[in-house]
Nucleic acid binder design. Structure first.
Length: 255
DNA sequence: ATGGCGCGCGCAGCGCGA
């Protein structure tokens, strides 16, 4: 089984890239973030033609997530339980015998801002929810734009980013708290190229300089991590015309 | 090299992302 995540930065604009990528990569589950579409405008027919059924939670202009699967998503949830939030950042579903959670974590804007406080609150609620989900679903996969670079090796210039949003110690502690539940960072299960990133700023010609961050992640429960045979970042879509600023991350599980 | 891009909204220019 192949699981993937991609922040598309507008599903409307990126739909041709997405359909091409799905055709080439042939994932079984695809998690999307920043769809920026109200549910009434979700391109369900186009994605069905590509072979996928979807669970999604969208809103106008901002945020929005979708979970695509070849088998119909079951037991769909589109919010963290008992965490009041207008922002659409969560789509969870059971696909076959695997529980999949698609996340678009808050950006946090700047350390000390209201949005940063919201990010940390969101992560605290997420941790509690994932503890419950893990208890119920030994086969759990958490994918998405988590907006945290967990370690210095996930940052192109750790000195410049030290203490900044995405790299601050409270954020990294929130990431480690997810690992402490028994989730594993699929990317780090394998030897990887140095300076592997999943996001590059549109400004400052960041992609050409590989001035990026690794903030898009696939976390696997112990049972799934045992079955994981590969995890990689696909930089190809970042080289296309009008790319998303993020690239897909893919994990393959032995069936 | 974070003014600098890209997107949505909506029709000018701003908010937001990371």
């Amino acid at each position: 089984m192949k699981l993937a995540t991609w922040n598309v930065n507008s599903l409307k604009v990126r739909l041709p890239h997405l359909v091409d990528w799905l055709d080439a990569a042939q994932p079984d589950v695809m998690c999307l973030q920043e769809t920026k579409l109200e549910d009434g405008k979700f391109p369900g027919a186009e994605l069905e033609a590509a072979g996928f059924q979807a669970a999604f939670a969208g809103q106008k202009t901002y945020n929005g997530v979708a979970l695509l699967a070849r088998a119909a998503p079951q037991d769909v949830a589109v919010a963290i339980p008992r965490f009041a939030d207008e922002q659409k950042r969560v789509a969870a579903a059971t696909v076959g015998d695997t529980r999949v959670i698609c996340l678009y974590a808050p950006n946090g804007q700047a350390v000390g801002s209201d949005k940063y406080a919201y990010k940390l609150r969101w992560y605290a609620a997420l941790r509690d929810w994932l503890a419950d989900e893990l208890a119920r679903h030994p086969r759990l996969a958490v994918l998405g734009d988590l907006n945290i670079a967990p370690e210095d090796r996930d940052v192109h210039d750790p000195k410049a980013w030290e203490g900044q949003v995405h790299c601050s110690e409270p954020e990294r502690a929130a990431f480690r708290a997810l690992l402490a539940l028994g989730l594993q960072d699929a990317f780090r299960l394998f030897e990887q190229p140095e300076k592997s990133f999943s996001w590059w700023d549109y400004r400052v010609v960041a992609f050409r300089r590989n001035a990026g961050l690794r903030i898009d992640h696939i976390l696997l429960s112990k049972e799934l991590a045992t079955q994981c045979v590969a995890c990689s970042i696909d930089k190809a879509p970042r080289k296309l015309e009008r790319p998303s600023d993020h690239t897909p991350v893919v994990a393959e599980l032995r069936s």
